[in-house]
Amino acid sequence: MRDVAVVSFAQTKNVRRENRRNEVEMLIPVVQEAVEKSGVPKQEIGFYCSGSSDYLAGQSFSFVMAVDCLGAWPPIAESHVEMDGAWALYEAWIKIQCGEADSALIFSFGRSSPGVIRETLVLQLDPYTLAPLGADPVSLAALQARALLESTDHSEREMAEVAARNRSNAKNNPYAQLTGDFDVDELLAEPYFVSPLRKHDCAPISDGATAIVIAADDVARKASKKPAWIRGIDHRIESHQLGLRDLSQSTSTSLAGEKAGAIDIDVAELHAPFSHQELILRDALSLGDDVKINPSGGALAANSVMVAGLTRIGEAANAIWDGTARRALGHATSGPCLQQNLVCVLEGE
């Protein structure tokens, strides 16, 4: 395997509604910042890959015009996944492993604001038996939270603590959307939103974009003073049928973590759009109390769909760069109730 590192990371501020700029106008400054910070000259970037969703954008082929942000001339080697950008990073990492490129730019963009995300995500379900029921993602997550609370020692108080810690951490993150100091007892006094979830247990609705540059071997060493080396990256999917899964666990995260070598982690950036999912993910990855979780505030502070997973990898790299971590973990999830999960383990020199 070639040594590949994250060498730069840029993101927009996450906002409830970006109604001034179009996707390309949002992406141009982010892509330029990622390229400049990377130290890899733009014309030398060997591969490009993006992640986004047509249903989120409300238009077929919505990724096509996004290519306009790249200045794809002369023509470039480029691909796109209809997935969170974290999987675009995986595809780019694979290309580099093949020796087809020595560096890659990965970007993703997602705006939930044009549509109603709770309605849009219903269309992610089996169209014959599940989607017609109209089960929305918050209700499905509530089913999962209930399963967790009933079958383990985890409590609603722990969920509130997760929410409070993430939003407190997010105060130091200029790109976060929902930040502040919250009192756990006061949170627990709030009414249920979809029981057992309260509003604070749910991610905000966000618009945003992220770009990352990765590079191999000497290209990374030459470009960056402190490459965040990808020591392992793996992703796994579970059954789509919720009834076939133990929702209180995330076996796909455990497996991906095992394959990616998720041990001795100092900082973990977990893509958990619901507070109870952070508890499930910590259990799945056996992250102890000594592991710092989501210094960025995680998805509970900013959750641009299709972007938030890639952002976790960027934030994990930040933890390497700012010295918080020697080994950091970035995680991304997709699908209802943590159906699909990716784990990326980063390490400093």
Binding site: S53, D54, I237, E238, S334, G335
Partner: peptide, 29 residues
């Protein structure tokens, strides 16, 4: 495009039928 079938990211629901459970699955577009 997903709108051709009316299912968002249909690879998620196809995981079972394609024997992908427990494995890596990617969706290209």
């Amino acid at each position: 495009p997903d709108m051709f079938e009316g299912v968002m990211m249909p690879e998620l629901m196809l995981a079972d039928s394609l024997g992908a459970v427990g494995k890596p699955m990617l969706r290209v577009h």
